[in-house]
């Protein structure tokens, strides 16, 4: 492990009801690196990313954040999670709190900031995702794209060392996808360390340094984005990428 490694997972395994959903998966992301995870549904991508911050318990395997091991028996998992930003597919904004309090809950209760400091910090993050005017809005009053940007701001407010995205645009209508991807692009440009599970192939190809292709709970192939998308080694990877491309062409021809 080099000093630049931010998050590292080794030999993760997990089964649900006798079915292997993660089969000896290892991966790591370096400081400032953007890693994309692609693959068909049911490949274990979401399980993997939820295991990386301990939202999902592992059967075996170890996970480190920097030099601290999340899977250590005495690990302060809550303190470690506070250093990892997580963005859910369906946002999971706190329904009973206004946008402002969604952003400030973690700052007040976890980071123990005072009200003034928390508000300053929360306003800055909300501004960063372009939703400063939604400070007093309820989550139910936001469009899907706005809700997802608020949830990104909520994660960013905690000043995470790495951001994990679990299919951040899959629950959105097509018009909203762009606004969320724009925010994510800005994070990439700002040098944020990110792991992104996504079906947005063009986006992954454009922003990821490194891409992992998963199928049936295992990593089939991993490589630089350009190489993996254009000259994949494994037949399964090629079939998946060709299939997506064909689907897109099909979409393009129908009005």
């Amino acid at each position: 492990m080099t000093d630049a490694t931010r998050l590292r997972a080794e030999h993760l395994t997990k089964s649900f009801a006798g079915r292997r959903v993660l089969d000896d998966v290892s991966l790591s992301v370096a400081k400032g690196e953007v890693k994309g995870i692609i693959g068909p549904s049911g490949a274990g991508k979401s399980t993997l990313i939820r295991c990386l911050n301990g939202l999902e318990p592992l059967d075996t395997g170890r996970v480190w954040l920097g030099a601290d091991e999340l899977t250590a028996r005495k690990a302060d998992i809550d303190a470690l999670r506070a250093r990892i930003g997580f963005v859910f597919q369906d946002f999971n904004l706190f329904t009973h709190l206004r946008v402002a309090d969604n952003l400030m809950l973690g700052l007040r209760r976890v980071r123990k900031m005072d009200a003034v400091e928390a508000e300053r910090c929360a306003r800055a993050e909300l501004d960063r995702v372009g939703l400063a005017d939604k400070w007093q809005a309820w989550p139910a009053e936001l469009s899907g794209g706005q809700a997802q940007r608020v949830s990104i701001a909520r994660a960013l407010a905690m000043a995470p060392e790495v951001m994990l995205f679990d299919e951040p645009t899959s629950a959105l209508d097509p018009q909203s996808v762009g606004s969320v991807l724009r925010v994510m692009r800005e994070l990439v440009a700002g040098g944020m360390t990110m792991i992104i599970v996504s079906h947005e192939m063009a986006f992954i190809e454009a922003v990821a340094d490194d891409v992992v292709f998963m199928a049936d709970g295992a990593i089939v192939e991993e490589g630089p984005a350009g190489q993996l998308f254009n000259t994949p080694h494994a037949a399964a990877t090629r079939a998946f990428i060709d299939g997506i491309a064909a689907a897109h062409r099909g979409e393009a021809t129908t009005p």
């Binding site: 911050n53 999670r81 859910f88 999971n92 809950l105 973690g106 209760r109």
Partner: peptide, 11 residues
């Protein structure tokens, strides 16, 4: 997902 989101920010 509500509790998961709370835990994800370190609560």
């Amino acid at each position: 997902g509500q509790l998961a989101a709370a835990r994800a920010i370190g609560m």
